[in-house]
Design a protein around this nucleic acid. Structure first.
Lengths: 222, 222
DNA sequence: TAGATTGTTAATCGATTAACAATC
DNA sequence: TAGATTGTTAATCGATTAACAATC
């Protein structure tokens, strides 16, 4: 397996990491639809990437295609799963059982793919003790002691902005070093901790910016 | 106002657009905290960007700082709001009133910032007719006729994967040309339509990939 | 075989950064 | 004034693309 000169310890470029899940999603669709083979040109057409980019991305990890044929869908999907690390299970804890937290907690796809929410925490006494999707909602006060007994791979922060950083600190202190952050605030973490942000507001603002950019451009003659 | 050679009709680089909301969020925090001035170095430190990048980003839109002083927080925030287009109202329709749709529909920040969800649609007869956050949930069958009477700036798709594309088509047909897509599928749209994706699964998979990358790197001596 | 398509190289393109003159 | 910090340029860095030999 050629790794295109990638040395151990070198990280894969952000752009590539960003596109891998897109490939995964689409290959899953193709497999379900019973499609057997696909070319980089077809993938590119369907997903709005260039064929060269897709081949280049995949070649970071190996050679999965065949000249004159393209890629076998099932095989490539399997490889992409392997690359993403979907073939194992991940223990997650969710902090914040508001509307967004509940939506995350009831997303069936996670469980189906091996992402298991093992505990839910909140500060609201009205929520604590309630069941949600097989979990009892616990007090955030128990978070540290819980994590001592049940280490988690991923911590999900679905709290309001104000609580984001302090919850993050608790998670990190409890040994969680991958944070999935829905709280609309920038988290400060030690070097060894990963943060993946899911900022709804930022996303909407990007859309609105481009909307206005387009509207401004419409009237132009230049 | 120098626009750094930016010509009418030219679009702002994705990276810049991606960072503007981050600046907006942090400047809002600073203003609430009563901070009066801030330098690009301080912003960079707080948000994990380089100072040069922040100055470079802002200079796409004008000169908002002062040598030897930095930026006035309130003034810069005002400019960023202007740039993002937050100073006006936007009419939104939400399709999909499941857990995620409900979470989006009850997010208070939207209304506070002028993003008004004016109608909610679903296919589930059990949901249709229910109230949610001031809106009656309507049948998707009424979407087209509704949009004819009440044009919307932004369409939010919070349906399962299978319905994503067809709902998108209905929205586009109804004149909505900015789509905020939570449905885990790649949407195909005409050129004049903007799509901003909010793919939870993609985000989690990116985190997991980097988690594994780190774990693989840990054991290395090289 | 002829046609198709890969994996990879080299060229291009664009984004980030370092540095500094301008100046508050 | 002296110190600080901007806005911008030029240099660097990295990512994308076009092209093509290899080969199924």
């Amino acid at each position: 397996m050629t790794l295109r000169g990638r040395k151990k310890g070198e990280t894969v470029p952000q752009g590539v990491v960003g596109r891998l899940p897109v490939y995964f999603r689409y290959l899953t669709e193709l497999e379900l639809a019973g499609v057997e083979r696909v070319s980089s040109a077809q993938l590119g057409e369907a997903l709005d990437f260039t064929a060269a980019q897709i081949r280049s991305d995949l070649s970071y990890f190996g050679s999965f295609g065949q000249q004159g044929y393209g890629y076998n869908v099932a095989e490539l999907l399997d490889q992409v799963k392997q690359i993403l690390g979907i073939k194992q299970k991940y223990a997650m804890v969710l902090v914040g059982a508001g509307n967004l937290g509940k939506a995350i907690g009831s997303y069936e796809w996670f469980r189906a793919e091996g992402f298991e929410i093992e505990a839910i925490f909140d500060v609201d006494p009205h929520l604590i003790g309630n069941r949600h999707g097989g979990c009892i909602i616990r007090s955030v006060d128990e978070l540290t002691s819980y994590l001592k007994e049940h280490p988690a791979d991923i911590g999900i922060i679905a709290t309001p902005k104000a609580a984001g950083q302090s919850v993050c600190d608790l998670l990190v202190e409890g040994g969680v070093d991958s944070i999935w952050n829905f709280s609309p605030t920038h988290l400060t973490v030690p070097d060894h901790v990963l943060v993946e942000d899911m900022h709804l507001t930022d996303s909407l603002l990007r859309l609105v910016f481009r909307l206005n950019e387009r509207r401004a451009g419409d009237g132009e003659t230049d």
